[in-house]
Design a protein around this nucleic acid. Structure first.
Length: 628
RNA sequence: GGGCCUGUAGCUCAGCUUGGAUAGAGUGCUGGACUUCUAAUCCAGUGGUCAAGGGAUCGAAGCCCUUCGGGCCCGCCA
């Protein structure tokens, strides 16, 4: 019995009692008690029935409590009425603890069958392949990757996609840099190619457009050639794109992120999927040829409201707009149209997962990366566009809610960090911009964090060899960055400050990892293997009870997080686990407990905690080092 | 002008979906705890007109309306 089973029992009993008493049906809430002194579980049914049956909440709670006493109650030891009107329950300690301990050591603990193996696509990252990933991209990547892991835990069949926009202006810009801007396509020694393209070539070329009209002229031409795909420029563009992509992926893998398939925009364009979608939209009457007004001669999507502008899909000169690349891609992800692609293996990733890529050449390999539901992780500046796509897809599928835009607010740079980039902002934070060179690269942050944690781990663990120190430092650096990017609500702006992000205390990834290392250490120092076939009744301090209770909540957290597409709930859960463990650690001695039985019982609890934490952290993509 | 998001402690944020018990963390500041399973820790104190006003409710940080402050989006660019 985890907490969920306790809730379920109380819920069904109250429902029965209320029904037997002839009360009207109300949507009452059964939830964890707000404070320990109230008990373990609370129910608000008294408040809800107060009006319909004209009794005071506490009076109703009293009646139900009396009735509850008469019923069979296996997992509830006490039913109390609070003067406020709440109905409070105390769990049967021995039954509860026994069940949490047993279930928490199971390999699949925390799993909750919400998805019933239905296919779900998560698309994230999707960074233009002309630059290195900066910390703003990291937020996207971490949200997408974490969500994918949580959905998998909630029994969805998850496919992860990364969309490579290799035919856009940004790629054209660096192609121009190499072809006409005088840049060598070999980066200076020791510099990653993506850093070189983004930090040097891209920033330089966009700056020169104003002064050198010849470069600007080349732009349109290069862009066209990239889309069409047969020219020498297109081949060169493809080569450059792939070199950048490879370096970007290295950063993603460093963060513990993997994918199933890379989708190249150029191929979507060249596959002519757009024409099929267009004809279908015309025949379904989803788009209109405007005959008058400022949009005369354009195919448009009519807006619902009067104030919102219509969205142009095809210009009066017959050329499709940007959104025309997104719509066929969205239909492809949902498997609405016949798949024009073949697939070939890009690489095998570190975790053994094969990464595929789309191709238009017939490789005789047909795979399926579509889903019944598609989640697209894009920052909320794209909300308007995503709303249009969602609407069109709904018209296509008529099934509703199959295309979900998971939006999030952007990452800005604090004024201090901006100052380090020679940018004076008068104390205000500033939006990042790849074009203007205002950003902090993900690799740099990880390197700086890694250096700091390396020194710290070495100081604390002088006995460890260097290779291990480096590994631990990297795990802590990644943990710190991933946690910082995921703990906050999606619609809050994250202001990134380099100095602040180096803090590893308090509500941080390393704090949680540290709790794990402590638990491992206890188990390591004990010469006994914990035996679980005993009674745990003696674990009855508040520190122990709290820890058991939080461990017992894991599957509920997974459910909530998956249902609400809210990855931060798992981050908070990990933090709470660590807080309760640290408190236990300081107040309750394990290895020097009063009896061998007590030592064993507490070792079991530590083991349970360790297993649960490592599973929860893995949903965040954070490794837990055993020493730090 | 329209749309989306946001405003809770000095600072950074939980809580708001689904109204209910004394509004919680981290950080900062003050003080305390290492001969002890790792002090990246723990414990105590400090700190709040939940932006403002109104409404419905027995009851509002939460729901509705208005106002104000902050951010983002609204091209026959991508």
């Amino acid at each position: 019995m985890t907490l969920r089973l306790l809730f379920d029992e109380i819920r069904s009993n109250i429902k029965k009692i209320s029904n037997d008493l002839g009360y009207p049906i109300v949507e009452f809430d059964v939830s964890e008690a707000a404070k320990p002194e109230f008990g373990d579980v609370s129910c608000n049914i008294g408040f809800l029935l107060a009006k319909p049956i004209k009794k005071r909440p506490s009076e109703i709670a009293e009646i139900i409590a009396n009735e509850y006493q008469k019923r069979k109650r296996v997992f509830v030891s006490e039913v109390n009425v609070h003067a406020s009107g709440y109905l409070n329950f105390v769990a049967n300690h021995s039954a509860f603890i026994e069940s949490v301990m047993q279930s928490s050591v199971r390999q699949d603990y925390g799993k909750f069958d919400l998805g019933q193996n239905s296919k779900i696509v998560v698309e994230h990252t999707s960074v233009n392949p002309n630059k290195a990933l900066h910390i703003g991209h990291v937020r996207n990547i971490v949200i997408g990757d974490t969500m994918a892991r949580i959905l998998h835990k909630a029994c969805y069949d998850v496919r992860i996609l990364n969309y490579v926009d290799d035919s856009g202006l940004q790629v054209a810009d660096i192609v121009i840099g190499f072809k006409y801007g005088g840049f060598d396509s070999k980066p200076p020694q020791n510099q990653k190619f993506d850093h070189y393209c983004g930090d040097t070539v891209y920033v330089n070329i966009t700056e020169r457009y104003g002064k050198e009209p010849i470069l600007a002229e080349k732009r349109t031409m290069v862009l066209k050639e990239l889309e069409e795909g047969n020219s020498e420029v297109a081949k060169f563009g493809d080569e450059i794109t792939r070199r950048v992509l490879e370096e970007q992926l290295k950063t993603c893998w460093r963060l513990g992120v993997t994918y199933d398939c890379l989708n190249f925009e150029s191929q979507i364009v060249r596959s002519r999927l757009w024409n099929v979608v267009l004809e279908k939209m015309k025949s379904m009457g989803l788009i209109y040829l405007e005959s008058e007004g400022k949009n005369a001669g354009c195919w448009v999507i009519k807006s619902d409201s009067e104030t919102e502008e219509d969205k142009i899909l095809i210009r009066s000169n017959g050329v499709a707009t940007y959104i025309a690349k997104d719509i066929p891609y969205a239909t492809w992800k949902l498997g609405i149209l016949e798949d024009p692609f073949y697939y070939k293996q890009y690489t095998v990733q570190k975790n053994g997962r094969i990464l595929w890529e789309t191709t238009l050449e017939n490789t005789e390999t047909k795979l399926n990366f579509t889903g019944d539901t598609v989640i697209t992780v894009i920052d909320s500046r794209q909300s308007r566009l995503q709303k249009i796509i969602t609407k069109i897809i709904e018209d296509f599928k008529s099934k509703g809610k199959s295309y979900v835009h998971l939006g999030y607010e952007s990452v800005t740079l604090s004024s201090d960090t901006a100052k380090n980039l020679n940018l004076e902002t008068e104390g205000k934070s500033v939006q990042m911009s790849g074009r203007k060179g205002i950003y902090v690269n993900a690799d740099s942050v990880l390197d700086i964090l890694g250096k700091k944690t390396y020194d710290e781990v070495k100081k604390r663990n002088p006995d460890l060899d260097d290779a291990l120190l480096i590994k631990i430092a990297e795990q802590v650096a990644v943990g710190a960055l991933r946690y910082a990017m995921i703990k906050q609500d999606l619609d809050k702006i994250i202001t990134f400050d380099m100095t602040e992000s180096l803090s590893l205390e308090g509500d941080t990834g390393p704090y949680i990892q540290y709790a794990y290392a402590r638990s491992v250490r206890i188990l390591e120092k004990s010469d006994k293997t914990p035996a679980f076939d005993v009674s745990f009744n003696d674990l009855n301090t508040s520190y122990e009870k709290n820890l058991v209770k939080i461990i017992g909540k894991f599957d509920i957290q997974v459910e909530d997080s998956a249902k609400n597409l809210s990855p931060k709930l798992i981050a908070r859960y990990c933090y709470d686990l660590a807080v309760y463990f640290n408190s236990f650690y300081e107040h309750v001695k394990v290895l020097t407990a009063e009896s061998p039985e007590m030592i064993n019982a507490r070792l079991c609890l530590v083991w349970s905690f360790k297993e649960t934490l490592v599973k929860a952290l893995s949903l965040l993509g954070i490794d837990a080092p055993y020493r730090m």
